[in-house]
Simulated scan of single mutants.
Amino acid sequence: AIPGISERMLSDRLTELAGAGLVLREVNEGPPLRVTYRLTDAGAALDPALQELAAWAKVHLPRSWPCAGAGRE
């Protein structure tokens, strides 16, 4: 849910997260070839910290900031 992100940038970030052990990259040969990602236990363990950051952002970031409203419910 990141407005304006290119496929290349998304792919690069997911590759970095996989390298850090936060996501697993799985290639399904297909056809068609499909790549999926899922959180590792370490990645899932970040959820409480990310929820706290989201709560902080709702209070402290102006809505006009890029991505400030991303993921808001």
Score class of each variant (00 low, 15 high):
24 L>I: 06
25 R>K: 14
25 R>V: 04
49 A>K: 03
36 T>H: 08
37 Y>C: 04
67 C>Q: 08
55 A>L: 13
71 G>C: 04
23 V>K: 01
25 R>D: 11
73 E>I: 08
17 L>I: 09
35 V>W: 08
17 L>P: 04
54 A>H: 10
54 A>G: 14
5 I>V: 10
36 T>L: 14
70 A>N: 15
65 W>M: 06
72 R>P: 01
3 P>L: 02
63 R>F: 12
41 D>W: 05
49 A>M: 13
1 A>F: 02
46 L>S: 14
58 K>D: 14
12 D>P: 02
60 H>N: 15
64 S>T: 11
20 A>V: 01
46 L>K: 09
8 R>L: 08
48 P>A: 08
64 S>H: 02
71 G>V: 04
29 E>M: 13
63 R>I: 07
46 L>M: 09
65 W>N: 06
7 E>T: 05
72 R>V: 07
12 D>H: 14
54 A>V: 05
51 Q>P: 01
63 R>D: 09
46 L>Q: 07
70 A>C: 07
22 L>I: 02
67 C>P: 06
51 Q>R: 07
43 G>N: 05
25 R>L: 04
16 E>Y: 03
7 E>S: 12
53 L>Y: 05
61 L>V: 03
54 A>R: 12
27 V>T: 06
33 L>T: 12
21 G>S: 10
65 W>L: 03
69 G>D: 12
50 L>Y: 01
70 A>Q: 06
7 E>H: 10
5 I>R: 13
43 G>E: 06
30 G>E: 15
63 R>A: 03
72 R>T: 06
67 C>H: 14
46 L>P: 01
28 N>Q: 14
17 L>W: 05
45 A>P: 00
52 E>P: 00
28 N>Y: 10
31 P>F: 00
36 T>S: 11
65 W>K: 05
39 L>R: 00
44 A>K: 02
42 A>T: 07
64 S>Y: 05
1 A>Y: 06
23 V>I: 12
67 C>S: 13
72 R>L: 07
57 A>D: 10
4 G>A: 14
53 L>D: 08
45 A>N: 00
17 L>Y: 09
19 G>M: 00
43 G>K: 00
42 A>Y: 05
47 D>L: 08
25 R>M: 10
60 H>G: 02
27 V>A: 12
44 A>P: 00
2 I>L: 15
65 W>C: 04
7 E>N: 04
17 L>A: 15
14 L>F: 03
21 G>D: 06
30 G>Q: 13
61 L>M: 09
45 A>W: 00
67 C>F: 07
29 E>V: 03
44 A>L: 09
52 E>Q: 09
25 R>G: 04
66 P>W: 12
37 Y>P: 03
72 R>S: 04
28 N>W: 15
47 D>R: 15
35 V>K: 06
48 P>L: 06
27 V>L: 12
22 L>T: 00
34 R>Q: 06
5 I>G: 12
17 L>R: 10
48 P>M: 02
26 E>H: 11
30 G>D: 04
68 A>W: 04
11 S>Q: 14
12 D>C: 02
37 Y>I: 09
56 W>C: 06
67 C>W: 13
9 M>N: 14
18 A>P: 01
20 A>Y: 01
41 D>P: 04
66 P>H: 11
9 M>Q: 10
54 A>P: 07
42 A>E: 15
41 D>I: 15
